[in-house]
Design a protein around this nucleic acid. Structure first.
Lengths: 217, 217, 217, 217
DNA sequence: AAATAACCGAGACGGTACGTCTGGTCTTTTT
DNA sequence: AAAAAGACCAGACGTACCGTCTCGGTTATTT
C-alpha cells in the first residue's frame, strides 16, 4: 500500500538498518503531526458532511496545513481515503482459532465491523475508492494491492483448513476465495452490510456452498 | 426507473374527465430529439474520454442543447448514467430455456454482455452509479429499483425451476438470489468481468453452491 | 398593490380610428388592457425590487402576458422605461403664469416632482435610459425626442418672457435653455434632486445667471 | 477611491496582542501585471465592441486571468470602469494660470478632453457608472468620492480667484461650483460634449452667470 | 556560527465546471 | 390570427475547487 509516501524515499519505519540511521539529505523532515492532522481532518469532514464535502481545500484548511503540503503527500482524494483505510486496517489482527469455521467467522466479523458505520466506518470509503478506480489506474493498482492483503490472510486460513482436512478434496482455493469474498462485498456495495451477529450464518451458508462446489475441476 | 421524467407527469392517459377533455397546460412539449441527442452525447463523451470527461457543460455543448434544458430533465450526472442504463436495458429479453441451468446461463450471459466494454459497456456506468449513490439518496433509490428489475427476472427463473423440482427442497430463494448475484457483481466491481464463455462455468459453480446450501433454515 | 391584474376588463378604449376598429371575433387582438398591464407590471417591479429585478421574464409573468407579446411591442427593457416615462409625462400640463419667474418655477417644480421618488419617481428611470442610450442608438433617438418635448415647453416660456421684455436684450435663447436645464439635470444625475420648495431658489439663481449672461454674442 | 483594494488593507501594524504573537507571513502578493492586464482588457473590449460586449467572462479571458482573480479585486463591472477612470485621471494635473479665467479654461479643457472619445474616452464610462450607481450604493459612494476629487481642484481655483478679488463679493462658492460643473456634465450626459475649442466660450458664459449670481444669500 | 536545504503555513494565481438566470425564439393550444 | 403558456438554445453570471506557484519563516544538517 503506502500510496503517497513514495516520494519520501527511505522512510525509516521501524528502523530497518539499525545503527546506520543516517539521512541522505539535509533539511527539515516530514512532520508526523501534520500527517495525522490531515488524516483526522479527512475523516472528520467525511463524518460530518459526507464525501461530497471532502475537498482538498477543506482538508488543508481544517488540518491547518498548506495545500502544497497536502498535495505533496496525497496527490488525490483517493490517496487520502486509502490513507484512512490503511490506518484503520493496521488494527485488524490475523485471526486464529480452533477450526475453519471459527477462523472464518472471526475474519469476516473483523472485516464487516471495519466496514460498518457503527464500526470502523470504512465501507463507504472503500466503495468510493472502487468507483474512482475506474478512471484512475493508479488507484486501481493500489486497491488490487489492498485486496491482496486481505487475500493473503484468507489464503492462510484456507490452507490451514485444507491441511486439517476440513475442506473437500480437490477444491480450487482461488475460486473458493472469490466465492467467500463476493458475498460480503456485494452486501457492502448494495449498502446492506450484515450485522456482526449475522456473520456466523453467512459463513455457514458460504461453507455449505464450498461443500457443493467441491470436486470440480 | 424513469428518473428524469418526473416533471412530465402523467400525460393524459384515457380522458380523465369525459366530455370536458381539457389539457392541463398549453405550450410546447418536451422534445424527443433533444432527449436522444443528450443521451447520445453522454455515451459518446464517456466512450471517447472516459467518465472523467463527462461534464454537464460538455454534454450540453455536444448535444447542442441548452444547459437549462439539460438540468431540467437530468439534474445530475447520475441521472444521465441511469438514462443510458435504462435505455440499454430495454433490449434485454426475459430468458426462457429448457431448464434452470440453461435459463441461468442465458440470463447471466445477457447481463455480463451488457456490462462488458465489448458489449453494452454499462459496467463502469453501473459502478459509478453505485459509488455516487453513497452521497445521493435519490440515486440510491433509483438503483434499488433497477436492481429489483433484474431481481424479478431471476425470481421467475428460480420459481419455475423450483416448480420443476430442479432445486433442493427447502432452499431459501432470497438467499439463493443474493448468492447468485454476488459473484458476477463482485467481478464487475473488481474489474474482472468474466468473458461470456466463462459464464457457463460460473453458473455451474453457483449451482453447486446452491446444492450445498440446501436444507438450511 | 393590485397592478397588472385585470386582463379581462372591458377593452373599450376611446376608439382611435372609428369604423375600422372592428375586428373579427375569432382571435384576440392587441388589447389596451394588456398594454396597461405590462406597463403597470414594469412599474410595480421597479418599485418593489429596483431596476435590477426588472426582467422581461418577470414583466411577462406579472402581467400575465406571453413573452412573445411583450417582445413584439417592447423589444428592449429601455422601451418599457420609455413607455412608463411617456405615460407619466402625459399628465404634465404646460405651465402658464403671470411672469417668467412664476412660469419657470411651475415648470421646474412639475418636472422635479415627476422625477422625485416621492413624486412620479421617474428620475432613476430617466437616469437608466440615458445610461443605456450609450450602447443603444435607437434609445438615444427616443431620448432626444423626449428632451425635445420639454424643450418646446421651455422655449415657449422663454419666448413669451422675451416678448414681455423680461429677458435681457440679445440673449441667446438656445444657450439659455441649456443653462436652465443643466442644473436640475445635474442634480438628478448625482442623486441630489432638490425638494420642491427649493426649486424657487434655484430658479432665482438661474435667472440671475441669465442676467449675467446677457449681452453676449 | 480605491474600490476593490479593500482586501489588501493595512497589513498588520504593530503587534496587537503581545504574548500570543502569531506569525506575520501572508503568502503570495497581488500581481501588478495582472491588474494592468485586466484594466487593459476592459478598455480594449469597450473600445472594440462597446459596453454591451463588456463581460466579466470576456475580460478574464482576454486578460488571461482567472475569473476568481477578477472578481476578487473588481466585484462588479462598475468597479472595472472606476478602475479605468481613476487610472486615466491620474494624469490630470492641477491647472495653474495667471487668473481665474485661464485656470478655469485649462481645468475644463483637461476634463472635457479626458471625457471625449477623441481624448481619454472616459465620458461614456462615467455615464454608465452614474446609471449603475442607482442600484449599487457602493458604486454611488465611489462616484461621490470621484466627484470630490474634481471638486477639490475646482475649490482651489475659486478660492485663489476670490483671494485675488476676481469674484463678486458674497458669492456662495458651493453653489458656484455646482453651477460650473452642471453645464459640462449635462453636455456629457446628453452626448453633446463641447469640442476643446468651445470650452473657452463656455467658461466665458459660466463666468457671466457667476457675476449675475453674485450678491445672493 | 553560518550557510544550506528541505519543509511548512498561507494564500494568490490561471483555469474549469458548476448550477442558476435571463434573453430571445419557436411550438403548441386556446380564444 | 393573435395570444397564453412554456420548452428550447445560447451564454453570462458569480461561486467553488482544482493544482501550481510564490512568499516568508522554521528546522535540521553540513560546513
Amino acid at each position: 500500500m503506502d500510496l503517497g509516501k513514495e516520494k519520501h524515499g527511505s522512510p525509516q519505519g521501524p528502523a530497518e538498518i539499525s545503527g546506520d540511521d543516517r539521512r541522505s539529505s539535509v533539511g527539515a523532515r516530514r512532520s508526523e503531526a501534520t500527517e495525522a492532522a490531515i488524516l483526522d481532518a479527512t475523516a472528520a469532514l467525511i463524518a460530518e458532511s459526507g464525501y461530497g464535502a471532502l475537498t482538498m481545500e477543506a482538508v488543508a484548511k481544517r488540518a491547518r496545513a498548506g495545500k502544497a503540503t497536502l498535495y505533496r503527500w496525497w496527490p488525490t482524494k483517493a490517496h487520502l481515503l486509502l490513507g484512512l483505510i490503511s490506518r484503520a486496517k493496521g488494527a485488524m489482527p490475523p485471526p486464529r482459532g480452533a477450526g475453519l469455521r471459527e477462523e472464518l467467522v472471526a475474519y469476516m466479523t473483523d472485516m464487516v465491523t471495519l466496514w460498518r458505520t457503527d464500526g470502523g466506518g470504512m465501507g463507504p470509503l472503500i466503495r468510493q475508492c472502487y468507483a474512482e478506480s475506474w478512471s484512475n489506474p493508479e488507484l486501481a493498482l493500489a486497491l488490487q494491492e489492498e485486496r491482496r492483503a486481505r487475500w493473503t490472510m484468507l489464503t492462510e486460513i484456507l490452507e490451514r483448513a485444507e491441511a486439517r482436512g476440513e475442506l473437500p478434496h480437490g477444491l480450487d482455493l482461488s475460486r473458493a476465495k472469490d466465492f467467500l469474498m463476493s458475498w460480503p462485498f456485494y452486501r457492502l456495495m448494495t449498502d446492506r452490510l450484515p450485522r456482526p451477529e449475522e456473520v456466523a450464518q453467512m459463513v455457514e451458508d458460504s461453507l455449505s456452498g464450498l461443500q457443493g462446489m467441491a470436486g470440480q475441476r
